[in-house]
């Protein structure tokens, strides 16, 4: 019998969270304390099922979320928790129920749960974790920085998932000697690096309308060298292709068109 199957004696447990990753984790932690009860997770962004009420509101408490993750780490492994957090980043539909089932099985079976590839609950979490990891890996290559007059570098992108922070950790090591800003134009959040310290800018305002962008840039503009470097890169990208092997389908398959907007090489006016 599945661990979260309904019990005749206890009513449906309705848990409402604020829609954030922390809120979601807290709701899962609360549900975890009620084995055997059927749980309905809701959040303000989601339509409630017919006849459902708002239910018990779970506060978004980072300390509680961390305690829950520590508990899972002790009972399973850091790999399990890492995978769970990656899947959480995607925030797909029914993520709470998926994480709850995964957490229960991880505690029951320990670290080896990551190898149970045929289990539907494990597969659900792994599938979403893989998608997020793939997008992080893609943007390690596809993120483009432009140099500003102040010497800072700006990277604007619109990923499918909220991956600004994992990318910022990557570029903190890679581009350690330059100051930069990574801006997620879809979620209106950013990460900045000043050469010593990494800061996360909270969501707020409409980035593409200029709010956060203007706040981060403070009047800064592309540097004098920027257009030249961009043109050189476009020349390289154009020239390195072998005409007799032209295969635009393969190019699109490897580099989906939804990522092209912020790639200088795919916006080459001389082509």
């Amino acid at each position: 019998m599945p661990s979260n199957s309904p019990s005749r004696s206890e009513p449906l447990l309705e848990l409402c969270h604020d829609g954030s990753a922390t809120g979601c984790l807290c709701a899962v932690a609360e549900a975890y304390k009620h084995p055997g009860r059927k749980v309905l997770f809701t959040c303000p962004d989601r339509d409630l099922p017919l006849f459902a009420d708002a239910g018990f509101s779970v506060a978004s408490d980072p300390a509680r979320a961390e305690r829950f993750l520590n508990y899972l780490t002790e009972r399973s492994s850091s790999d399990v928790v890492h995978t769970l957090l990656r899947a959480l980043t995607a925030m797909p539909e029914a993520i709470e129920a998926g994480l709850l089932a995964y957490a229960r099985k991880a505690v029951l079976q320990g670290a080896c749960i990551v190898q149970a590839h045929a289990d539907p609950d494990v597969r659900f979490v792994h599938r979403w974790a893989r998608r997020v990891s793939l997008e992080i890996h893609r943007f390690k290559g596809l993120l483009r920085f432009q140099e500003l007059k102040s010497g800072r570098f700006l990277a604007l992108f619109e990923p499918d998932y909220d991956i600004t922070l994992p990318l910022a950790f990557h570029f903190r090591l890679r581009l350690a000697s330059q100051r930069w800003i990574i801006l997620d134009g879809r979620r209106h959040c950013a990460a900045t690096w000043n050469g010593l310290r990494l800061n996360a800018e909270a969501p707020g305002g409409d980035l593409l309308q200029g709010d956060l962008l203007e706040r981060c840039l403070a009047g800064d503009e592309p540097s004098a060298d920027e257009a030249r470097s961009r043109a050189l890169w476009q020349t390289f990208h154009r020239t390195v292709a072998i005409e007799t092997r032209t295969n635009p389908d393969l190019q699109r398959q490897c580099m989906p068109a939804r990522y092209w907007k912020h790639l200088p090489e795919m916006n080459d006016s001389s082509e």
């Binding site: 890996h137 390690k140 290559g141 596809l142 990208h237 390195v240 292709a241 072998i242 005409e243 092997r245 032209t246 295969n247 635009p248 389908d249 393969l250 190019q251 398959q253 490897c254 580099m255 790639l263 090489e265």
Partner: peptide, 11 residues
């Protein structure tokens, strides 16, 4: 890490 793909589909 692949950074782009050219029109011949090569990374």
């Amino acid at each position: 890490i692949c950074h782009s793909w050219s029109s011949d589909g090569r990374c």
